[in-house]
Nucleic acid binder design. Structure first.
Lengths: 95, 95
DNA sequence: ACAAAATGTCAGCGTACGGCGACAATCATA
DNA sequence: TATGATTGTCGCCGTACGCTGACATTTTGT
């Protein structure tokens, strides 16, 4: 049951959902993740400036695993954008 | 080709690896992700206090996808720790 | 060998983060 | 309905983040 994370809001919603499904209060989660209760609340509300380390701590406390994979082939633009830049750089070098 | 992310170091290494495999410099990636070049360098070096939003921006710029999934069943302790707390809470309520 | 490109590192600046205590508002339950 | 639990929000404080410019060091390419 994997959820794709494309935004902070996705992540926040997943964290809140998981916390609730485990029957934990924000305070309990905070204790396990070594963050403040207020931090949990604000993170769940979608705060984009949260510190990565603390995010990972919370995910760990909730037994949530993050995985990272490539999505080349799924996107149309980035590969052409990359080629364009590489091309220009190369062109500049040859000149 | 999915990589499990269990630490900042994992993530940083994946980002650097991906950037290199795409043939991008830190400066190029920085431009695409709307962060400073120095930020990319420090993040790749494993800085744990990076801002989540910027991390997601960089992952997007590298066409890397994050997914989140539950790992109950893989761990032995958390489920017993959670049960203990829930039990105590319930016990307190009944009293 | 040398030059250009890339990366590592430093310092200054302004903004804001995380923890804390506290209180308001909301929710759950008896 | 009343009460306790939970969550939202505020303000204070000290620390540090991200950007920038700059320079040192390393790597790459010829």
């Amino acid at each position: 049951m994997a959820t794709s994370i494309t935004s902070i809001r996705d992540l926040a919603a997943s964290v809140r959902g998981r916390r609730r499904s485990l029957g934990l209060s924000q305070a309990q989660l905070a204790g396990r993740a070594h963050v403040s209760r207020q931090w949990v609340g604000q993170f769940e509300a979608g705060r984009p400036t949260a510190e990565l380390r603390l995010v990972l701590q919370v995910l760990e406390a909730l037994d949530l695993r993050l995985t990272l994979d490539e999505r080349d082939g799924d996107r149309r633009e980035p590969s052409s954008a990359i080629d364009l830049d590489a091309l220009l750089d190369e062109h500049r070098r040859e000149r």
